[in-house]
Simulated assay, not measured.
Amino acid sequence: MIYIENKKRKLEKIQEQYPNADILDITSTASARYAQILSPFFPHGNIPIPFSPGHYATCVEGIWQGLKVFESCGIDMDSFTNTTMSGLKRTVRRFGPPRGHQKGLNSTELLNYFDARMLIYLPTYKWVLDNVAEVHKVVMHIAERAKDHDIVFLDYNTNTEFRDTSTPISHAGLVKLYIEGKYPQEGETYLPFTAEEIAQRKEAIKEAKKQAKKNKKENKQLNLFE
């Protein structure tokens, strides 16, 4: 089984919750290259920019950030060639309200957040998982390991539901979907969660956490009186 946990959680707490699991940090700050290359910030190079034939970028995040359009500025060509894994974020604080993502380098069409996620981010990240040999080899190794071991991916984002636009998607969650054969398929129609569905999902997650804490407490009490 594959689980996703926030990298900011104390490692001791994660180890306590998943005592027999392999814990793998797959963010850009991971110490091991085989884990770091799964980050959307990693500069693999030659990644096709969606809706832009003949144009390529160094990393997934560079494409996502580069195609953003704000009230005060348009797309950022420098983002497509950034190889440093830093300075990629283009924020509301700096550029003002976002207008959307441009549908390719030479388009005037702007995509809303959900459509941009489905037509730009997810296909681009999947391209890396499919086509970068080093990445694909690592993912297949993890998939084999996950057949009989628990694995915990560490990521700064933990939203594993691509239809939930209330928070950024976890790329670790996308790796999990890819391994489980549940990655969103191109050509399929998906709808974003409604506000009500998002609220229900958050409540379900909250209740699941409460139940996990309760089970943990009960197990400690049982161990005490064994």
Rank of each mutant, 00 (worst) to 15 (best):
V175G: 01
E207Q: 15
E186V: 09
I169Q: 14
P19S: 10
K216G: 01
D78E: 14
M118L: 15
E5V: 03
K176C: 11
M118C: 10
G87K: 04
H44Y: 10
T189C: 05
L129N: 11
T165F: 03
R99F: 06
L154R: 10
H171Q: 09
A21C: 10
R201E: 12
I49K: 08
H171M: 07
V138S: 00
I26T: 03
E109D: 08
T124W: 08
I142E: 00
Y178H: 12
I37G: 01
L222K: 14
A21L: 07
Y121H: 11
Y34A: 09
R33N: 04
D25Q: 10
F42S: 01
W64A: 07
F114Q: 12
L88T: 01
S166V: 07
R145Y: 09
D78I: 04
K202Q: 14
A32S: 14
H149T: 08
Q221W: 08
D164F: 13
N223S: 09
A212L: 14
S166W: 04
E207W: 06
R9Q: 11
G173N: 08
L24V: 10
K137I: 02
N6S: 14
T160L: 07
S86K: 15
Q17Y: 02
V69Y: 03
P19D: 10
A57P: 15
V138W: 00
Y56A: 08
E203C: 05
N219R: 15
F80P: 00
I151W: 00
